[in-house]
């Protein structure tokens, strides 16, 4: 047996410390509410046990105000914690604008990571300390769940969808990363390591791992795919086929044929490649073939990264 008992997990981010504070305070409140119950229960049981001759006159059988009191007061106290916990939760889904976007693709039973400048790794994720990192995640097969206990965050990766989450790991170190959603035979060994490095070390690591320079950045890989798959044939400026122009589309509102308008985000761009009929741009025919069976999620990520990097007028798409 090794390791002894671990009493509290390490906290690698400010968020983790906040969660610890929340559970600590909430735990204190629950003790405050329940300790009297346990004490009274034990005391009543002993004091009023059958063999004892004590005063049992005028035992109450109901009291509306007492009932309402112990229903409503703990509820209101708990609602305070509800607000706190919900604010903290919503934070995980509001990444700062300058967060480093890293793509995560899970499959049975490994984690694949793509850094924006082209570095790729498996079952290990290097991130800079003190800089927000946004994970854009999807799965190739079943549902997995990205879980780093030291960050107190967890998010399922759903096939066919993007989920995301961001964190700001402040303390450099190595933190285990685990799959938390049961995903089949080797679920329990689908682990990895989150390696938080001082920014200069991270930059050096990136430089060493840039894939020998052949693939270039993720966006450059996407640009090559855009050409090779023939996307530019229809979406290019000179094309005779009527397809919507894609330059600078990311983050812009798109009017759909259904009458709705949405903001072009990762999910929308990916859906448009894989399920082109889901949302058809207003004024265009639904003629785009689906690439659902052709592309791997990493390639879709590259294409989306490329589309994000384009500008409205001067680039070709």
């Amino acid at each position: 047996m090794s390791g002894g008992i671990l009493f509290w997990p390490p906290a690698a981010s400010h968020h983790a410390e906040q969660v610890d504070l929340l559970i600590g305070s909430f735990g204190a409140m629950t003790w405050l509410l329940t300790l009297p119950v346990f004490v009274l229960m034990a005391w009543f049981t002993i004091r009023y046990r059958r063999s004892r001759d004590v005063n049992r006159d005028h035992a109450p059988t109901r009291n509306l105000w007492v009932e309402l009191g112990w229903s409503i007061i703990p509820f209101i106290l708990t609602l305070g914690f509800y607000v706190w916990a919900t604010m903290l939760f919503l934070d995980i889904y509001r990444p700062p604008a300058d967060a480093v976007p890293i793509h995560v693709v899970a499959k049975q039973w490994m984690w694949k990571f793509q850094h924006p400048d082209g570095a790729r790794e498996i079952n290990a994720l290097h991130v800079p300390a003190g800089r927000p990192v946004k994970l854009i995640m999807t799965s190739e097969d079943v549902i997995h769940s990205f879980y780093v206990p030291a960050l107190r965050v967890k998010q399922d990766l759903v096939p066919g969808r993007y989920t995301s989450l961001w964190f700001d790991a402040e303390k450099p170190g190595r933190y285990p990363l685990r799959c938390a959603e049961f995903c089949g035979t080797d679920h329990s060994v689908m682990g990895g390591m989150l390696i938080v490095m001082p920014p200069q070390d991270y930059a050096a690591w990136l430089a060493r791992n840039r894939d020998g320079g052949t693939d270039g950045t993720l966006a450059q890989a996407g640009a090559r795919l855009f050409r090779d798959l023939g996307c530019s044939g229809c979406h290019g400026a000179a094309s005779t086929v009527k397809a919507p122009p894609l330059g600078g589309i990311f983050g812009r509102p798109v009017a759909l044929s259904s009458g709705d308008t949405l903001i072009a985000d990762d999910q929308y761009l990916s859906d448009s490649i894989l399920l082109p009929n889901k949302q058809v741009v207003a004024g265009y025919d639904p003629i785009m073939p689906t690439y659902g069976n052709v592309l791997r999620p990493e390639q879709v990520n590259a294409l989306v990264a490329y589309l994000k990097s384009t500008r409205a007028s001067k680039d070709s798409p």
């Binding site: 969660v19 916990a85 995980i92 967890k154």
Partner: peptide
């Protein structure tokens, strides 16, 4: 505790 969103994110599953 599990109904509290931020706590649940850490301890669910």
């Amino acid at each position: 505790m599990l109904a509290m969103l931020a706590i649940d994110v850490h301890v669910t599953d």
